[in-house]
Design a protein around this nucleic acid. Structure first.
Lengths: 166, 166
DNA sequence: ACGCGGTGATTGAAAGCTAAAGAAGTGGTC
DNA sequence: GACCACTTCTTTAGCTTTCAATCACCGCGT
């Protein structure tokens, strides 16, 4: 057992360097893409991701909760986001036929068109900032690392690995 | 020269997997640390980073612009952040003697104490979410990759100075 | 000394995010 | 069929971030 009075395991110099590089790179990249999309498509990066996801969904529509889970954001945040996208006419909310509580977000033609125009510039920005600078070994490694981290932070389904508890 | 009418180089399936993993991992980790610090120290992750940087600076003070550059945020954002931290009594603004336009942010004893109490939990959270899940090769690789990305997005040759921060 | 472009920092309004609470609907149990 | 716990989604209020001014000061050139 650990207890609260133990000396914490501080980061080593090398770990600190990695952590600092991580923080700097992710803030810079995030800000960079946000600005790029805000300039070229008048929306933040997260909203763009939502439209992309919708565009790939069957019949361009998806349940709110599903969309939120996929984008790793809260339902509350999604609600606000979809409200703004709806104001711009890029998305429409519609009732879910099978569950009266449910809503579907539907990507309109206008939304699809905005996406079509923004996509090339965005992909170019991602390539230029990330993929073009890494060897294919580094790309592979990055993918593995990020999958591990994402997996570890996934809010777990309690019943998933404990089937006897439901 | 490229031109706007070329077919863009879309991401390959493998690149898309990497990019998606990156986006998921970084949003999850960012949110996770934000929540951890909001719960345990009543401040967002960025603010915590500012206090950490100040605590390592000579005489626990730093010029606003230097602090903003180091944290990779805009001066405007820093201004608002420091205002907030000042309200809580964790930081104080003071005039810079050598340049009447300048301001120093100074980490108060109260601010230092908050940091001292929050640090162990925060380090533990970072370890648990990131370092504990990666092999030392992966840690090394992550550091290299993030340094490349950060370097590429650096507005200019920033970071040459600040010797006390290595 | 004067003007002038550039730098350091702040401000205010609007956009976006979070947490907590609320409204509506579902589904199982007795 | 009435209850009860849970799910889905929205709303509210407060906080943070962004963007575009704004203000004050620096130092350089003339």
């Amino acid at each position: 057992m650990t207890n609260d009075h133990e000396e914490p395991r501080w980061l080593s110099d090398e770990e600190q360097r990695v952590w600092r590089a991580y923080l700097q790179a992710t803030t810079l990249l995030d800000d960079h893409l946000d600005r790029q999309l805000q300039r070229d498509a008048r929306m933040p990066h997260v909203y763009y991701g939502l439209l992309v996801t919708l565009s790939a969904a069957p019949r361009r529509r998806m349940r709110m909760t599903e969309l939120a889970k996929y984008a790793k954001i809260t339902r509350s945040r999604l609600s606000h986001a979809i409200a703004r996208l709806e104001q711009r006419g890029w998305v429409i909310r519609e009732d879910c036929p099978s569950d009266k509580r449910g809503q579907n977000a539907f990507l309109t033609d206008a939304g699809f068109e905005v996406l079509r125009q923004a996509a090339p510039g965005h992909v170019a920005a991602v390539r230029h900032a990330l993929f073009d600078r890494l060897t294919s070994e580094q790309q592979k490694s990055l993918g593995e690392i990020m999958e591990i981290v994402a997996e570890g932070l996934q809010p777990k389904e309690v019943g998933a690995d404990l089937p006897w508890l439901r």
